[in-house]
Design a protein around this nucleic acid. Structure first.
Lengths: 219, 219, 219, 219
DNA sequence: CAATAAACGAGACGGTACGTCCCGTCTTCAG
DNA sequence: CTGAAGACGGGACGTACCGTCTCGTTTATTG
């Protein structure tokens, strides 16, 4: 009786060993442990493999880069309610809710080091950088856009408002403290950056046209 | 009675040892060239030394880390007028002026790659990270504080306003695009992030007390 | 028609991994070549690796020190008949046979430079010196003891004779000329030092007791 | 008007320049100290200069190689009576006297490490090796020949006896233990090797002609 | 007693080799 | 036939000394 099917597929990807295999779990566990114990800088594929008691080749077989491992670590740690967050009644409340949750995740789990590791690694390997942008950043920004879409439906946004720069600013503020480490990623920081962005949007009613022009250049 | 004569010599002064020597210039030139040609990831101390036609040990003699080289490259490229910028009449104008100049610098010279390289390297080496924060970041933030100090004197800021989070946001927005590369660091981006921050500050008159509390934890 | 061929290759069997591999042979060949061409002083691990067309890390993977490489080079060159030499009828004849063979080996192959290299390197690295003494010297002295054991069975040795000093003298005489290079390691030298040692042993019949005391401190 | 030279100084400073200066003494002291403290392997010219509080250039000005320094250290330590030793009545007594004194010197002072350092360094630098052979070894062998010359006058030696191999054997036995360090260079070792060589010479009366032929190729 | 020349300290410099870490690929062999 | 194990070529790291050099400062001798 063959319990493990060969998993022949037309399209590649997906784990032939089946999802949540021992190998996958061991590798992600090892990576997460190393991230919290030593920080992103000390995480190498060799150490992950050694700690997971898995051959280095096995790691390379399933993950094309360190970034891919970090993305999986992050995903495992992110609670579902963060992604599908409930409507909080206003743009500012929505953003505050999401950012508080995100910062708590970065602060209290391996997710912070994992994200820092992704950013660092993306600087070193253009190939990996592309997958990082497409598979991780893009999906994260969708989360932010959801809040702005709700606000638009509520009529909170000036006409022609482009959310991209706002998302850049919120993300950037987080990255900055995450990478620099000079100040904590706590709730008050989330509240502060959300307040500035929300107020900045509200208080520019007649600048909508200018904003559209100015923001139009962003991706 | 002058006992120390001016010491006329046959060889007029081929190279002064120590700082500002031929060596220092050659190394910084080589590093800048490599940064623009290949990007920060491809810059290694060995390649810098080779391109500068200098022994690797000489590089290590003068710079303790790659970050230190990048900081010197950056400093060499930054025009003085960026540092001592003239008063533009308002907070928003001041910030816009500084950020436009900074983004132009990052966009058009090796300074952008140098900064990206510093951030990346700081993730890999805690020792270097410290010198980065203290010798580079700290000095850069002083630049931003100057604009907010002027604004305070003009009465543009609510009572108890803390500039640190605002600086985090502006810096972060720049880092984010610099590291991610998904959108350009152009003038319109500078204008947009400045507008949001400036408007966000203006439109929170009664939130001064709250802001002080919230922002008090930063720095 | 089988779509998956059995992997027909141009070079049918490139290298078996592990010991006796292409790598091992190439490294030892390169080391031996460098020893005869330039002498022990010019042999560096980097040059060995370069000449063997092998990565430096591969050399370090298999040999912990330069001494270890030299020992393997020596062993490869030493003919088996030198180790398991036949009984020549008398102590003097046995010793003469072994030493002539040994000196020929040192004189005509890379073994001489290899031994000189081992001695030199042992002075520079205590760790390596230990392995040299235990893995190389100890085994070499066993060879000498074999001759003295036979002599003892023949009754050629005075009671209580200790072979260690005799072995020190024979070995030392060889090392001296090997390292100093002021005179050849030829057959007549082998004969001379053997004659002196053998005669010295024979002609001290009543000094057995004294010899035992005197020699007791050695080894 | 100073009729006599001032010459009164805090530090007497007899001969600041040239040989026997403060510099020379400081360098040799530093070298000797390092030799006993860390062994020959740890002695580098940089460390000697640092410990002597002397510029590296100054060391290079007066000594062409590390061997030259070691030779001077050795010479400073060797007592004159060792060189001009009194007649002890027989070859064996003469040799025993010299070797005991030499081994004591090697055992109890920096001279042992210095000699080991010379031998090692001579393997690495052919230029230095030549000066070592000519300025150090040659002079040392003269010492041995003095003992054999006296024996010849006493009629202790067979006709045509060549002392060179005997000297090689005695020197070699010492070098061997010095370099290998597996057994002590104590008086009993001196006695043992002297006894073997002396007895070996005595007991070969009719082998004089053969010995001359055999030994003729040496030196 | 000034000028000269040497020794000197200080240390920058180009260079070689070291031994280590990690990369990503490739080979072998056991299940 | 596929996987785990790990050998492999390779690049870069940061360090230790090498021996040479330049430079400016004493120090001793000499003109």
């Amino acid at each position: 009786v063959p319990p493990a099917k060969p998993r022949l597929r037309a399209t590649p990807r997906l784990r032939p060993l089946g999802p949540h295999s021992r190998t996958e779990r061991a590798v992600l566990k090892a990576a997460a442990d190393l991230l919290v114990a030593k920080g992103a800088a000390a995480v190498t594929i060799e150490k992950i493999a050694a700690r997971a008691k898995v051959a280095k080749t096995t790691v390379y077989r399933w993950w094309p880069s360190k970034i891919a491992i970090f993305m999986d670590v992050f995903e495992q740690l992110a609670p579902k309610r963060l992604i599908r967050f409930p409507d909080q009644g206003s743009l500012e409340a929505d953003l505050r809710h999401v950012l508080r949750g995100l910062l708590r995740l970065l602060r209290t789990t391996a997710a912070g080091s994992a994200l820092a590791g992704m950013i660092t690694e993306a600087q070193l390997d253009p190939q990996a950088a592309a997958s990082f942008r497409e598979a991780f950043i893009a999906r994260g920004r969708v989360l932010g856009r959801r809040a702005f879409d709700r606000a638009k439906r509520r009529g909170e946004l000036p006409a022609g408002f482009d959310a991209e720069v706002a998302i850049d600013m919120l993300s950037g503020a987080i990255w900055y403290r995450l990478l620099l480490g000079h100040a904590p990623l706590d709730d008050s920081y989330a509240d502060s950056i959300v307040r500035v962005v929300a107020a900045g949007i509200r208080s520019a009613p007649e600048s909508g046209a200018r904003a559209r022009l100015a923001l139009g250049s962003s991706s």
